[in-house]
Design a binder for these strands. Sequence first.
DNA 1: ACCCGTAGTCTACATTTGTAGACTATAAGT
DNA 2: ACTTATAGTCTACAAATGTAGACTACGGGT
Lengths: 126, 126
Amino acid sequence: MGGAKLSKSEQHVLDVLWSEHPLTAGQVIERLQQLTGWHESTIKTLLTRLVEKKAIARRKDGGRFFYRPLLTREAVLIDESEGLLNRFFEGQMAPLVAHFAERRKLSKHDIEEIEKVLAKIKDRDA
Amino acid sequence: MGGAKLSKSEQHVLDVLWSEHPLTAGQVIERLQQLTGWHESTIKTLLTRLVEKKAIARRKDGGRFFYRPLLTREAVLIDESEGLLNRFFEGQMAPLVAHFAERRKLSKHDIEEIEKVLAKIKDRDA
DNA sequence: ACCCGTAGTCTACATTTGTAGACTATAAGT
DNA sequence: ACTTATAGTCTACAAATGTAGACTACGGGT
């Protein structure tokens, strides 16, 4: 695994690259400024830090550099959800679902969705 | 929600107080040292910072101070899982479950547990 | 060949976090 | 009342983070 831990703002930059890539620095800046209003320099710094942390890479194509993610969204997601699960539910998924269910965070539709998913799994594993 | 954001180590201290409280500083230190090996001073600092952040409170009882959580585990959990859910699943629970299911993070037993939970909810809401 | 803009690098600085030493106040026991 | 343990406060300092200015270099157009 490895994956140096990313800070909040770094993740925000990464988000942009997940949603669309490769992008030039300028494009990243453009998109992020819409979302955050951060200064251009700030975003450049974040890009640099992400490259250092090997969370993204850049490649020269023609005259320009293009940035793309190295860490997948998937990987980060796993990492974080695993963390949450371990911290609060001893790694058990069921109690997490139960928890949300109890708090009425699940609509009827949600419940059906989940049941569908579970059915599919059971089916597949059968 | 107010809740100033807590750092990793601060959360660790809070964990101890969730599992058992009220506790004196000494008791917190004792328990945390078992888990982390942190120096006494470090833990005192963290306690102080938690008090400043109003994540915990202390009260004098007899000669001693006793610490207890102000933020509930519940609240922090909600906060964090909400965050995760929003960042990765647009707030939707079903895709999260699906995700874990796909990754085989769910055993047959888990699945049955979850189904049971969902059934209960549906029942209750019916 | 020269200038310009876009992008990359270097430097900076306040805040937060991780980690801990040193000093102090106070309750409890003798 | 005095000592001592125990806990609380102050200070410290490096690394990480949030945020940004200044300077530079290179590719593209004229």
